[in-house]
């Protein structure tokens, strides 16, 4: 079971990386594998990060839409896949604190490995 969980955590990370990124990330992954495994199991048993995803699961309709999309500039050679300062998926109204020690540990490592952990 432990090995399956370990593969479950690592497989999507490596699968989502490009070849060069995966090669560079593999030693790092292996160096923190025990911590990742602990965090994954803790999160799976305790489920402290689970909550009602009110922003997605609440029925809501939009109407009278006005939209503006004005080109500003092209940017070259950016280092991150995600826009700096992006906040379109921010959640303010979640009541849980987002996890106990295990899921916090997992959350700390996931960004290092290029994987954001989503709630819900």
């Amino acid at each position: 079971m432990g090995i399956i969980a370990f593969i479950y955590v690592l497989a999507p990370i490596i699968a989502d990386s490009s070849d060069s990124d995966a090669a560079a990330a593999a030693p790092l992954l292996l160096l923190v594998s025990g911590f990742v495994f602990y965090g994954y199991i803790y999160a799976r048993y305790r489920n402290a990060d689970k909550r009602h995803s009110h922003e997605r699961e609440t029925t809501a309709k939009t109407a009278n839409l006005e939209q503006i999309d004005t080109f500003i500039q092209s940017r070259k050679g950016l280092n991150n896949a995600r826009m700096q300062g992006a906040n379109q998926d921010r959640v303010e109204g979640a009541l849980n604190e987002g996890g106990g020690e295990g899921s916090k540990l997992l959350k700390e490592f996931m960004p290092l490995l290029g994987q954001g952990q989503k709630q819900g």
Partner: peptide, 25 residues
């Protein structure tokens, strides 16, 4: 030393709309 780089276009964006939320719990 291989690195992944990204090019992107930047836009000024606005979305203005009426929102009808049904049964927020």
């Amino acid at each position: 030393s291989r690195k992944t780089k990204y090019d992107a276009d930047s836009y000024a964006v606005a979305r203005v709309f009426d929102l009808y939320v049904d049964d927020l719990t």
